[in-house]
Design a binder for these strands. Structure first.
Lengths: 199, 199, 199, 199
DNA sequence: CATGAATGAGCGTTCATTCAT
DNA sequence: GATGAATGAACGCTCATTCAT
């Protein structure tokens, strides 16, 4: 059971779960997910012990995927400002390109089935992002605010920005920029200023 | 006119729904809500046509209550900065004093049963808050960002702040302050600075 | 309770029951019937102890009304053949003019709630009709068949005829005639022949 | 292919439905039917999508079975009169031997859940019977009456006859005969007479 | 007596999970 | 391991009937 026969089937189930949950909500029947994956309803339970188990694995996978997409292409040597900006762009792109994943993730986030353990692991997945934020707020006005709180605020601004980018795609770029500027202001513009006037 | 529909009973149902939903989620049985209100399961449906109807009415009531609590005691003549600060304090107090209402509201917000109409009405309920924000960002850096977006960002920061105040009550005051400062910075500190150095 | 206050209300309930049952079947809510009568749902039960009681009274009333309409204008002195023919015409007219009553009656007929007593009384209501048939079959081939059976057969032919008159109104007259002729043939044409060639 | 859907179980459900409906009417709980078939209530819905679906399939099956029983042992080469007489005997035997089926069929017939499609198919099932009637009325007095009407009349006489055979079993044979004679008279005795006096 | 809110048993259907094949 | 039939608890909602007003 540690390594079920077909990794493919597991992935198909995860993918189908994303779609179906995005479309029908968390109360979507497991049978619908199985069908979406081209698998019998019984088989779902050889890959996931429980619907809740599926939810937890899916949650973690989506969050990890999001984090990875967000950090994609970041070079540690690049100036902080550049890294930060790229991170935001990546994040927004992930959100707009993967509306199903985003919706499923949001639904799962507000769901009692998600274990503390899973939440902790998902937290872990965001550690690179957190580290970047850590640097960004380093000696700004939020220097004494708990990192988790800072990350939570940033995430919440990100979500709000995504919502507007999605609901008003004509001005998606402007919204992305407005969200980013708001974030920078919130964190304190020290690093930005530094970036602007190096010397 | 026979036994009239009792406002008390309706209120009891609304209150019970808040509690039960906070505790068990949106899939809580209507029978549990009725029991919580000390009423037969059938009676619930003389006050609400449908579970979804109950959800909509509850959502609106919670949101309206939240908005009212948030604006309580604000004097229009007072300096903007003072009003803004009091609003934030009110809001946070409502959230920490009414965790059930907050959780129920959050769950309902992500629920397909909530009508567009209901959402529109709930939007309306927040109009006073929005107006205050309108003034606060007036000639700051967000002056060209759509109001809805500004409000959404503020709300998202508020939610994040509430989460930390609740989960770490020892430092609730500091979190509240940190959230408020972050908000001010995001909106641009023009008005604050003005308030500080009137000279 | 023997004489409820308003005979009008009772009649309104009976009329509404006919309509509603014709439209929705026997499972129609009593509340719908009350509403149709412009009366509160509770009031229905001051006029009828029970839904089954309403059904019984309605059944009897419909059957009695049908029988009366069927015998309307028959002169006992008129030739049997003429009476018989008029009866048939009356019966068919009643059916085509009162489709709701007919449908309600049919539904009630196949319903377990109708008491043996009620059925006996309704039988009684048809006694005039039965008597006419009694004469018609007097010395024909059915002279030894139990009257009830003869009446039942006639009624069943009548129902079949009504069905076709209603479903194919363009040829209603022909269907009525065909049904009548079939009935006469079944009963034996002695009396008719006698009527035709008296001498 | 996993446990295949068992024909036995389906048949048990159909049989149980017949019994239960005959006993309790169409409002019989699906759970009662399932119990009668020795099956869980949920299982009923793997064999029938809906209570209405069960009703439709049952209706068709009963009607088809009745038609088959009615035509059983008829030899097309035999004289019409003999065929006709055997058909009637078969039909009456089916009715008296299967009172539950008959009652269930009657209830279903007056039920809105039965589709037009189902009715059409059930019509089809009676086509052999209809054909026989077609010949019987061929050049008699009903030669110009629509076949459906003729069949409907015959069926209605059959039902009346069955009622009396069942309710007065002591004279079942006489009733059967009386019904048959009535039918022959209705159709016109030409063919019979021809059969009697071939010369 | 009229009204309509209150009651609670009851029903059709769904669905996570199990297990025979 | 894969399949999908089997299971039965659970749920939203209805409705005949009662009873407070």
């Amino acid at each position: 059971m540690a390594r079920p026969k077909s990794e493919d089937k597991r992935d198909a189930l995860i993918a189908a779960a994303t779609e179906v949950i995005a479309a029908q909500g968390l109360s979507a029947p497991t049978a619908a997910i199985a069908r979406g994956a081209g698998v019998s309803n019984g088989s779902l339970f050889t890959y996931f012990d429980t619907k809740a188990d599926l939810f937890n694995q899916l949650y973690l996978e989506l969050k990890t995927g999001m984090a990875a997409a967000t950090m994609e292409g970041l070079r540690a040597e690049a100036p902080l400002r550049e890294q930060f900006s790229l991170m935001w762009a990546n994040w927004m792109r992930w959100a707009t390109s993967n509306p199903d994943k985003r919706r499923a993730l949001a639904l799962l986030d507000g769901c009692d089935d998600i274990t503390g353990q899973t939440r902790a692991a998902s937290h872990q997945a965001m550690s690179d992002v957190a580290e970047l934020v850590e640097q960004a707020r380093a000696d700004g006005p939020m220097r004494d605010v708990p990192m988790d709180f800072v990350v939570a605020m940033m995430s919440s601004l990100a979500e709000a920005t995504m919502d507007f980018m999605v609901s008003d795609p004509e001005h998606a770029d402007e919204h992305r920029g407005a969200g980013f500027d708001a974030l920078r202001r919130m964190l304190g513009e020290t690093n930005q200023r530094a970036a602007f006037s190096p010397r």
